[in-house]
Design a protein around this nucleic acid. Structure first.
Lengths: 213, 213
DNA sequence: TTGAAGATGTGACAAAAGTCACCAATAAGC
DNA sequence: GCTTATTGGTGACTTTTGTCACATCTTCAA
């Protein structure tokens, strides 16, 4: 993607923002990019800005004390990180990990203007509410799958979600990565995938899983 | 508790609301009460109002397709149901269960005035944001415990949370109820409780667990 | 081409959790 | 008192998941 200005990004991915808000943001935000694989946020880190994703893809996951991971959801262009809204506003440390899975571009909004945004721009207010709502609902789904389902069903749910979000049926995932996302172990995932393959729902390739449904 | 007016409740539990907001709410809300054990909200139900809890205690939990339960958190006086904010605003059906665990009183805010509240009363806006934030953080904790911890640790976490919220070390819970909240089975909970008792962290009574830490 | 690293497959076993059957203790109602 | 429902205890067993050890296979770089 060619070099777009903050204004270009805002018009493209945040058309619902009122004009004055877009102008305000264009003045005060800086554009930051992260390389694929780069960590954008980690527990214990303080924030001086909230981030609006305008290009790429960000993976949000929780990290356990033992170092285990647990995938929550992806952020895409047009999304904001609900957690960074929380953390920036409350000046608390983040409790989740955010990692760029592709080269990712964000608009960084300094916390100093957050209060102004919230008070004076209705569309910003609606946007933050909508962000909370959406993330909340995603978290509820995550809780469901982990509370009520066995690993086999969770794996199916995970693969389905990946095909939707990555927008391809050839999922570029190793068994090891899947295991990490589900906080399980590679061997177990390998076996479950094999079962699913025998049922005819996927085909296993090296470094990839092909979703057939 | 004697018969309080909406205004009394607002002053007591929502002192942070600006005066005009309290007046507005006093005019437009109705007081509803629920008996102990009464279901206040269930999946598939539409809402015509958002609820502010002003007395009693409400248990929020998720229900699986198989009928299993999964405890999320309690709402207490001064809290609002984040989900009812979502559902009322988006006119979507609820996806969680809410049950009064004690006789509970709420102020019901008709959705018709929600937009007005959001637009014109700053303290309402802050309140809704704060509500989302708090529930979000509670959900993250729930996810952690279920993603990274074994049943034994989850049980400890659960008991601890109960002592905090119920504000007593004599938890009036049967093993069956605990098992339901954790979406496990009574026998397993009984055994784990026994272990914890042997470690000296609790004493088991009939219909109650005494938390010693 | 060869060696190293990473990805996957698999058997054997261990640990955690759920299920079933049944018993004992307690409380509540008649 | 007696009966019955609820609560809790326990052994035996199964299923699910995790762990360990090791074998293949592929890719890539030296």
């Amino acid at each position: 993607m060619a070099n777009l200005s903050a204004n270009d990004y805002l018009n493209k991915y945040f058309p619902q923002f009122e004009l004055a808000l877009k102008e305000k943001l264009a003045q005060h935000t800086s554009i930051k990019t992260f390389e694929a694989g780069e960590l954008m946020m980690q527990p214990g880190q303080y924030f001086r800005s909230t981030m609006l994703v305008v290009d790429g893809k960000v993976k949000l996951y929780r990290q356990g004390e033992d170092g285990g991971e647990f995938f929550m959801y992806y952020l895409e262009p047009g999304n904001a990180c609900a957690l960074s809204l929380i953390c920036a506003t409350k000046q608390e440390t983040s409790e989740v990990m955010a990692k760029a899975v592709e080269k990712t571009t964000v608009l960084a909004i300094p916390i100093e203007i957050m209060d102004d945004l919230v008070r004076n721009y209705k569309t910003w207010y609606y946007f933050t509410l909508e962000t909370y709502r959406n993330r909340f609902e995603e978290l509820l789904q995550v809780i469901d799958s982990v509370a009520f389902k066995g690993l086999d069903e969770r794996l199916l749910f995970y693969l389905k979600k990946q095909t939707e979000k990555l927008n391809t049926k050839q999922l570029p995932l190793t068994h090891q990565e899947i295991a990490a996302d589900l906080n399980s172990s590679r061997e177990v995932i390998s076996r479950l995938l094999k079962k699913i393959e025998q049922r005819g729902d996927v085909i296993l390739h090296r470094n990839a899983v092909e979703w057939l449904k």
